[in-house]
């Protein structure tokens, strides 16, 4: 068949990045060639179970690395679309409403309870040492640094993350994502970027809400119910909880929000067919988000601590 040079030029090999991006859009499953399993290995009967076990382990590890690569590319694409242009208001507002406004009551409620529970649990110990008024420092410190951000993120993952995964998963299964793409709208830009922005920008507000309501809950239990001296309660709180603590909590929450939205949307985009697939995407979104939240929390906790002691070396010597 005769070909014009121009046409041959058009048939250039797709770039590596392009190929990688593709792989991240469609599930890897379609590209994998069958690999030899344990059965096909030439192995004496005795070590065959071990070989099989190793093969299974290898498959799991490869699966993990693949999904890690997949989600990294997914993140890159989301970021590149986000910086390319801003989504339209009619896609942004519903996402913000869903993520921010509707999550506020649950976060406030659970925050209040956590504050009270903290008071209940630590009161008897502190009482034995006659340090009741120090409860303010303990409760408010743990709320602002740890529990507020983690609680808000957990509620967001449970309420919004799994809903996003189920919603996008259903869209994948019923070909709505394909339909979107076929009409020249980029599904990442149209579906993921608004949700990502919503989680990223609104989770600090949710965190502050959880902090605030937790503090209110702790105050209510300590002062109103246990009759601890309010003046010293607040004095100790003020002495120990600084703006760096508030900052570190809010700073962490940005990462939590980004992780929740990316993991959940990614789960939805790579949903297996059928109702079962959608269900698995929804639970997977929550479980992976939660694990990731705690892992990020640990790493950022260590990082922020070392920053704190670098900035204020004398802080460690105060107590």
């Amino acid at each position: 068949m005769a070909e014009s040079p121009a046409r041959r030029g058009a048939l250039r090999r797709p770039g590596l990045l392009n190929q990688l991006l593709w792989v991240s859009e469609r599930s890897m499953a379609s590209e994998v060639t069958p690999s030899p399993t344990g059965d096909e290995l030439i192995a004496p009967r005795a070590i065959r179970p071990i070989a099989e076990w190793l093969a299974d382990l290898g498959a799991v590890v490869i699966g993990w690395i693949t999904s890690l690569g997949n989600i990294s590319l997914f993140t890159l694409r989301t970021l590149s679309w986000m910086f390319a242009r801003l989504p339209r208001r009619d896609t942004l507002l519903p996402a913000f409403y869903q993520i921010g406004v509707l999550s506020l009551p649950v976060v406030a409620l659970t925050g209040t309870f956590i504050g009270m529970v903290l008071a209940v649990q630590s009161y008897s110990q502190f009482r034995m040492l006659h340090l009741e008024t120090r409860l303010g420092a303990v409760i408010n410190m743990s709320l602002v640094r740890e529990l507020g951000p983690v609680l808000a993120a957990t509620m967001l993952a449970g309420r919004v993350g799994s809903a996003m995964a189920a919603e996008l998963g259903t869209m994948r299964v019923t070909e709505q994502i394909d339909a979107l793409a076929s009409m020249g709208a980029n599904p990442i830009f149209y579906l993921v970027v608004p949700r990502f922005l919503g989680c990223l920008l609104l989770i600090p507000a949710l965190t502050i809400m959880a902090d605030f309501m937790g503090i209110v809950g702790g105050w209510f239990y300590c002062i109103v119910i246990l009759n601890i001296d309010a003046h010293h309660y607040w004095e100790h709180s003020q002495a120990f909880v600084g703006s760096f603590d508030l900052f570190s909590g809010v700073f962490k929450s940005f990462f939590f929000g980004a992780a929740i939205s990316l993991i959940s949307c990614h789960r939805g985009f790579h949903c297996d067919p059928g109702a079962e697939g959608v269900g698995r995407a929804a639970t997977g979104a929550f479980v992976y988000s939660f694990v990731t939240i705690l892992a990020i929390d640990l790493m950022l906790g260590i990082l922020l601590d070392s920053i704190y002691y670098t900035l204020w070396p004398e802080a460690g010597r105060l107590i």
């Binding site: 770039g15 694409r77 793409a181 076929s182 009409m183 020249g184």
Partner: peptide, 22 residues
Amino acid sequence: SDMFALRERELSQQRTRFGFVF
């Protein structure tokens, strides 16, 4: 032009020239 060598943006552009009835 090769549909699989296009950038995402160009691909979206080309797809507007299609109508797909699922």
